[in-house]
Simulated scan of single mutants.
Amino acid sequence: MTGVRLTHIGGPTVLIEFDGWRILTDPTFDPAGRRYAFGWGTSSRKLTGPALAADAVGPIDAVLLSHDHHGDNLDDAGRKLLPSARTVITTESGAARLGGHAVGLTPWSSTRLVRPGLPAIDVSATPCRHGPPLSGPIVGEATGFALAWEGQRHGALWITGDTVLYGGVREVAGRLPVGLALVHLGGVRFPVTGPVRYTMTAREAVELCRAVRPHTVVPVHYEGWQHFRQPPSNARRAFDRAPDVPVRWLDIGAPTDLET
Rank of each mutant, 00 (worst) to 15 (best):
A51Y: 00
S43A: 13
F145L: 13
I138R: 04
N73L: 13
N234W: 13
C209K: 02
G167M: 02
A95T: 11
H184I: 03
L250M: 10
G49A: 09
G253A: 05
A238Q: 14
S135K: 13
D240T: 11
R153G: 13
P191H: 10
R129M: 13
A102G: 04
L65K: 04
S135Y: 12
A142W: 05
V63M: 10
L208M: 04
L185C: 06
S93G: 07
T199G: 03
L165P: 04
L182R: 07
A56S: 14
T28S: 05
I159R: 02
Y222F: 13
E17K: 10
G144M: 09
W225I: 04
T25K: 08
E92F: 01
G117E: 06
F239S: 04
A181Q: 14
H67P: 00
R229A: 08
H227V: 06
R237E: 06
R189L: 00
G131D: 05
G3Q: 07
R237Q: 14
V192Y: 07
S135Q: 09
P83W: 06
S124V: 06
G33S: 03
L6T: 03
G144E: 12
R129Y: 11
D257T: 12
R189D: 00
T42G: 04
A53Q: 14
A37N: 09
A254D: 06
D240Y: 15
A125F: 05
R241C: 11
G117T: 08
G78I: 03
L15H: 04
G20F: 03
R229H: 07
V103A: 02
R86A: 15
G155N: 13
T91S: 12
R197C: 03
D240W: 15
F190V: 00
T87L: 13
A205P: 02
P27D: 10
H154Q: 13
G49F: 11
G194F: 01
P214M: 10
T111E: 08
G99Y: 10
A85L: 09
T201M: 00
G187F: 03
W149P: 07
T25F: 08
H8V: 00
T193H: 02
D257E: 14
F29C: 00
N234L: 08
D240Q: 15
I16W: 15
K46Y: 06
D244A: 13
P83T: 06
E141R: 10
L258Q: 07
R86H: 07
K80T: 14
M1Y: 05
R170K: 13
V88T: 14
L113T: 08
T260M: 15
I89W: 12
D68K: 03
V218A: 01
P116W: 11
V103G: 03
G131T: 02
V169T: 15
D257N: 09
A120Q: 08
G155T: 11
A125W: 04
V218P: 09
K80N: 12
T193M: 00
A95H: 13
H130C: 05
M200N: 01
L65F: 10
T91M: 09
R35A: 05
P119N: 11
F228S: 07
G20W: 10
D244K: 14
